[in-house]
Amino acid sequence: MYTVHTLFVEMSTGAQAATASNNSLPAQNFDFFLVLDFEATCDSATKIVPQEIIEFPVLKINGKTFETETEFHTYVQPTANPRLTPFCTELTGITQDKVDGKPTLQETMKIFEKWMEEQGFLDGRCSFVFVTCGDWDLKTMLPGQCSHFRIHLPQYFKTWINIKRTFQHVMGQYPKEDLMGMLKGLSITHQGRHHSGIDDCRNIANILKALAERGCIFQPTYRL
């Protein structure tokens, strides 16, 4: 049995007050935003082929309050190149013991599909869209690995918001430093470790909310 971390965030009195203050946020076209940021095998000297996802985090963001309701998070066992490089560990903070014995990507995709079903995303009860920092996660990384290992890629992964493009639209300039540049441009303090997938998701979520507070109505920026 694999343990996948799912955090349910209960709304406290303070959060309820914050929700009331969020009534001024613009109405969105989606009930929920799913913030996603993969980490993958990598090396500084050579290109790893195939590159494999080793961290799979997703935040479920309420489209009215822009608060996180649930987190899906698991580390993933790479199979073609199961040993992480020192560079990869230094960059991401992911050590070998964190991925050893964890579900493979094929198993993770099945677990995530079940999570999506439990959240009501697969029966039409609510609308949602993925949010990423760039197009790499869902244009290159996931489709490439699914193709290599002959894993089915669900249709819902084929539309997303590249928040860097949205930031450019709202702020008038493309973020040269990616995530850190957007945080700086919006005067948001960085939280956690950069290149930790779950921490990057939380920072992207803060950017998402800050752009909404500036009147942004989010639209998909890419479809496969």
Rank of each mutant, 00 (worst) to 15 (best):
Q155N: 14
H194N: 13
R165K: 15
Q51C: 13
L153A: 02
L105S: 11
F33R: 01
N81G: 10
A212E: 01
L224G: 14
K164F: 00
C126S: 12
P26C: 10
V4I: 06
P78A: 09
M109R: 00
L84I: 13
A80L: 08
E71H: 06
Y156D: 01
H169Q: 12
I188F: 02
F149Y: 09
F8Q: 03
I217F: 06
Y2G: 02
V76R: 04
F72W: 12
P175S: 08
G215C: 10
T221Q: 14
M171W: 01
S127G: 05
Y174K: 15
L84G: 05
V4N: 06
Q96F: 10
P154R: 05
S187I: 07
M141V: 07
E55G: 03
M11C: 07
A212P: 03
N23L: 08
D123N: 14
L59K: 03
F30V: 00
L179G: 08
I163A: 03
T85G: 13
M182C: 15
V99Y: 06
N29S: 14
I188H: 01
K176P: 15
H5C: 10
A18F: 01
S196I: 09
T65K: 01
F66K: 00
G134T: 13
T140N: 05
F38G: 10
V76P: 02
L224N: 15
K110E: 12
L25W: 00
G144P: 01
E90N: 11
K60F: 00
H5D: 12
T13E: 12
C216P: 02
I111M: 08
G185Y: 03
L179F: 11
V76N: 00
V9H: 04
V9S: 09
Q119S: 01
G93N: 10
G144D: 05
A210M: 04
I53M: 02
F72V: 02
E107D: 09
C146R: 03
S12C: 08
P103A: 07
A27M: 08
S196H: 06
E39L: 14
M1F: 08
I161P: 11
I54H: 00
A27R: 13
W160L: 14
K110A: 06
L138E: 07
G101A: 04
K184R: 15
Q168D: 10
Q191I: 13
T41S: 07
K139S: 15
G124R: 03
R150G: 04
T6W: 06
T65W: 12
V129S: 00
E113H: 09
G192S: 08
C201H: 06
N62I: 01
T79E: 12
T140G: 03
P103F: 04
E67I: 00
G144K: 04
P78K: 04
I161F: 05
Q96R: 09
K209N: 06
L36N: 03
T132W: 09
P103N: 03
L186C: 08
V131A: 11
F121T: 04
L179W: 05
T108V: 05
F33A: 01
P143N: 08
R125C: 10
A80Q: 09
E107N: 05
H190N: 14
P82Q: 04
P103E: 02
S187N: 10
P175W: 07
M141D: 12
C146P: 05
T89Q: 12
G215E: 09
G215D: 13
E71C: 01
L138R: 06
E177K: 15
C126Y: 12
L122Q: 09
G185M: 06
P103H: 04
I188W: 00
P175A: 02
E67F: 03
Q191P: 10
